[in-house]
Amino acid sequence: MPPPADVEALYRYLQAQAWEPALEVLYQNRMSLAIDPLLQQATQVLLNALRAYVNSVPKEVLEKLFLLHTGQLFRLPEDFFADVVVALVERHADRPEVAQAYARWLPEHPLCAPYMTPMHTEPVWEAWDGFAVKRYVPTRCLTPPSLFRSRQEAVFFQAVREVFLTYLVYPNVALSCLLDYEQLADALTEAERSYVFRAQVDCVVFDPDQDYRPCFCFELDSPLHAAPERQARDQTKARILGLAGLVLYRIRPPATPPDRQAYVRLLRRLLAQATPDKP
C-alpha cells in the first residue's frame, strides 16, 4: 500500500494558489488516487480551482497539466484538457511549430485548426545558452507506450529503486547492452548469438562507482513462463548472462500479486546474501 497522501499540504498550496507544488503533491501521490477518498476530494477541488484560472496560470502549470494527462499519470476531464490545450496553443502563438504540437491534440477546435496545415519546411537551428537546437514536432498525435508491460513490472521496478538507492536502475534493458559481444561470440551457439540482439532483461542495476557497469539483473516471471518454449528462452538468457559474468535473479511472484514492500523485503534479503559485507 502506498503511504497516505498529505492532503493538508495540497489544501495549503491550493489556498495560496501555489499551483506547481500542488500539482507535485498530486503527482507524488498518483498511485493513491484510486483508493484515497480524501485525496480524490482534494484533487477535485484543485481541478475546479485551476479551471477558473486556466487562462491566467503560468505556462509551466499548463505544461505540467498537459504532461500529467498525456503521460497517463493522471487523466483530466476531457473538457478541462481541451481548455489546457487551447491555452497552450495561445501561449505559443509566437512559435508556430510548438503551437502546432499542442494543436494536434484538438485539431478541430477553431483556435487549433489554423495550425494544422502541414509544415514541410525544415526547422531552423535556434540558439539556447550557447547550444544550437533544432526541434522536430510530432506529425501524429499518438501516446507513447509505457516502458512497463504490466502493472507488476512497474511495482517491482519501484521496489528495486528503493533497495538500490545509490545505484541506477533501468527497466527492459537490451541484452546486447549488457555484454561485450565480440568477447563472448565464440562461446555462443549461432542461435544464442541471434538471441543476444532480440532479448531484453526486465530490470538491471548499474553501479555508478564502477563506470556504470551492470551488477544485478532481475527477471520477473509471469505464469506464461511455464510454457516450454519460454523456459527454453529463459535458460538461454541465463546462460548468456552467466557467460558475461553477470548475476541474474529470476523471481516468480505468488498467485496474489505482491505489493511494493513485499518485493523490497525479498530484494533486501537477496542483496544481504549476495554482498554480506555491505549494509
Rank of each mutant, 00 (worst) to 15 (best):
M1G: 08
D6R: 12
D6F: 02
V7E: 14
E8T: 06
R12E: 15
Q17A: 13
W19R: 04
P21S: 02
V25E: 07
V25M: 05
L33H: 08
T43H: 08
T43N: 15
Q44A: 15
L47C: 10
A52T: 14
V57P: 06
V57A: 01
L62R: 03
H69Y: 10
T70H: 09
G71M: 04
G71A: 07
L73M: 10
L73K: 06
E78W: 00
F80H: 08
F81Q: 11
L88M: 02
H92F: 13
D94T: 10
P96Y: 03
A101W: 03
A113F: 02
Y115V: 00
T117N: 11
H120N: 11
P123W: 01
A127F: 02
K134R: 13
R135C: 14
T139G: 07
L142W: 06
T143Q: 10
E153F: 10
F156S: 08
E162N: 13
Y170R: 09
N172Y: 02
A174M: 09
C177Q: 15
Q183L: 12
L184P: 14
D202R: 11
T236F: 02
G242V: 01
P253R: 03
P257R: 10
Q261H: 14
Q261D: 15
R269F: 04
Q273Y: 04
K278D: 11
